[in-house]
Design a protein around this nucleic acid. Structure first.
Lengths: 188, 188
DNA sequence: CCATTTCCGCTACCTTAGTTGCGTAAATCG
DNA sequence: CGATTTACGCAACTAAGGTAGCGGAAATGG
């Protein structure tokens, strides 16, 4: 009941994603042509569309396959951890073309299926920040009147806001200011 | 030196924007077809493209023309003002299809000209919040270690973050929590 | 060996954003 | 009035995302 019919060529996925990566590195999301990707991969366009039902889903699969977790090793100092994590996210976001992120957000808002994938992609970081904020709260670094969930939004949200809306740069210094604004100055 | 040549038909802009509004109300950004807009407006597509060099710019012009300033009358209570303003922005954002905002952000990130228009559109709200935050600071409601600019990002950024990234709803209650998180609990 | 099933490639097609070229209409300048 | 200038409509075109149909290739089941 399992392997009926001709099996899928495992090399297709690999070659297509490689070609897509090559294309997106050069021209970004808009510059990626599905026709060219198929041609570069030596694959018919119909075969490509059998695996990924839209250009957006192809790009999501590409990003997902490239995904390496944000480097982060927890210490015993929640403030340091939070600063490090927010800085790492900011750096990671800054290294991605803003248009690409905006296109993913647009595709996510338009097609529910893509939305799931994209949100899963970004939720991981959100959860990581949530975890560290919880530790900071346990350590008494968070004021009582502050909701941890809101605090996470106020740490991560401004990064996307700058990237997509105001267009201002995402510097490590800015990340530090975000944490400082929320936790107060160092008391050492 | 002024009115040389055939003058532009003033009715074109009006009819096109009306048709575009009609289209975008139904199918959003993706559902708006330039061909159909031109046809509905009784205008050649080339004439349309002479005025707005891309679909994105047409939509920006449409949004700009529809723009009504966020209702807001300042009182003598900066905290109340801030809550009211953030709530108003949240309500306004929530009433717009997320895909439309994401598409504008994507177009803004891709084409510099569109970026200017879109950013000008959104910068107004940012400035309004900045002004109220300044008043709050004068009133001693903002802690010394907090940068007002960062604080504005932490009030407005989470709204876009929720709308575009996490997909969570923008409620008035959430807006209130944002302000509360940043200014501390009421001390009445 | 043969029928069935699934995958693949190919060609042709649809829709839409955006462009080009051309003939023509409406204005101004001399 | 005539030349010039600019706007308009029309038709044809390109490029790109996405789909449909067909013939054939590679597997499994009998």
């Amino acid at each position: 009941m399992v392997g009926r019919g001709r099996p899928r060529d495992a090399g297709v996925e690999q070659r297509v994603l490689a070609a897509a990566l090559n294309e997106i590195r050069q021209g970004g999301y808009a510059g990626l042509s599905v026709d060219r990707v198929a041609e570069q991969a030596g694959v018919a366009k119909t075969t490509l569309y059998r695996r990924w039902p839209s250009k957006a889903e192809l790009v999501v699969a590409l990003i997902t396959s490239l995904r390496e977790d944000v480097p982060f090793e927890p210490t015993d100092d929640p403030r340091r951890d939070l600063t490090g994590l927010v800085t790492a996210i900011a750096t990671n976001l800054a290294s991605t073309p803003p248009a690409l992120i905006a296109d993913l957000a647009a595709a996510a808002a338009r097609e529910p299926r893509v939305g799931e994938s994209v949100r899963a992609l970004w939720a991981e970081r959100h959860r990581a920040v949530t975890a560290v904020v919880a530790k900071a709260q346990d350590a008494g670094l968070v004021l009582d009147h502050v909701s941890p969930a809101v605090l996470v939004d106020q740490l991560v949200g401004p990064l996307y806001y700058r990237l997509l809306v105001t267009g201002e740069p995402l510097t490590p210094d800015y990340a530090r200011k975000l944490v400082r604004s929320v936790l107060g100055p160092e008391e050492s």
